[in-house]
């Protein structure tokens, strides 16, 4: 019995250590962000002493920097991309999961094989394309390329395939057209998968860096990650300000994650469609 308890002790010690490694940096980040002194790298113990705390850095981020503009840009772009991704991936996923038509396998194979193509290869042509359309440094240019993501189509297809075929056939006999089967049967029973796609897309769009850093030229079109990357170069010595800014960016994805945690984990593997 003693040995068992010792094992348990080791197990929890390892667990605690891992947890520290994974969330410790964020706690460090938080304490820097509330530090009054700009010299945050002296004695780490000083960071933990309440008299040295202040929330002024957050106020400074909000007031002194174009943070509000970046927040708006990020929110706008992310929301449009999330809504459209959910919509389009549901449509395309339904087609690939449930309809048979000539060329379906080939088309789907083509989409999947493109997943191994590095995004950097698309960067130059996409930029030239946007440049020709005069869409560099515009919202349209920032939004358009990510209205649909192939992985999302794949996820929706996977989910729709778990919905029993009987359900579709019962609906056919009841008199549904395929459009109605999609709209009145498949969509309503797919909320877990749709939520998962929405959450994944939100997170991906919110954190996207390569495309906006390439396409947004002026500060008024920056998204939050681009803006903070830019701040990093400007205010490298002002760590409290920088950490306050980065913490603020993290909050929305963190909140969404904590609220919808079960969708992340069950996500698409969920059997929401099964009775």
């Amino acid at each position: 019995m003693k040995r068992l308890q010792f094992q348990k002790f080791i197990f929890y010690a390892v667990l605690l250590l891992m947890t520290t490694v994974y969330i410790g940096p964020f706690i460090y980040q938080f304490f820097i962000s509330i530090s009054q002194s700009k010299d945050v790298f002296g004695d780490p113990v000083k960071l933990l002493q309440p008299p040295n705390w202040t929330f002024q850095n957050y106020a400074n981020v909000w007031v002194d920097l174009p943070f509000k503009q970046w927040l708006f840009n990020s929110l706008f772009i992310t929301l449009v991309q999330t809504i459209m991704n959910v919509f389009f991936s549901a449509l395309a996923g339904f087609v690939f999961a449930r309809l048979t038509f000539p060329g379906r396998k080939f088309l789907f194979g083509l989409l999947i094989s493109s997943l191994t193509v590095p995004v950097i290869i698309l960067l130059v042509p996409k930029f030239i394309f946007m440049n020709n359309l005069r869409l560099v440094n515009t919202y349209a240019g920032l939004i358009l390329p990510n209205l649909i993501t192939i992985t999302n189509i794949f996820l929706m297809k996977q989910f729709f395939e778990t919905i029993p075929k009987d359900l579709e056939e019962a609906a056919l006999i009841d008199g549904c057209s395929y459009f109605r089967i999609f709209w009145q049967i498949f969509l309503p029973v797919s909320t877990p998968a749709l939520a998962a796609v929405a959450i994944y897309t939100f997170q991906g769009s919110w954190n996207e860096f390569l495309w906006p850093v390439t396409l947004a030229i002026t500060s008024d079109k920056f998204t939050l990650p681009v803006g903070v990357g830019f701040l990093k170069n400007q205010f490298q010595s002002d760590w409290p300000l920088l950490m306050a800014g980065t913490l603020l960016i993290t909050l929305p994805t963190l909140c969404i994650f904590l609220v919808f945690q079960r969708y992340f984990v069950q996500g698409v593997a969920a059997s929401g469609g099964k009775e």
Partner: peptide
Amino acid sequence: LSPKDRDIAMVFQNYALYPH
């Protein structure tokens, strides 16, 4: 004719009830 025009009704093994 498509299933809906045949005036038939079917009961499935897995019931196939609309869960929502």
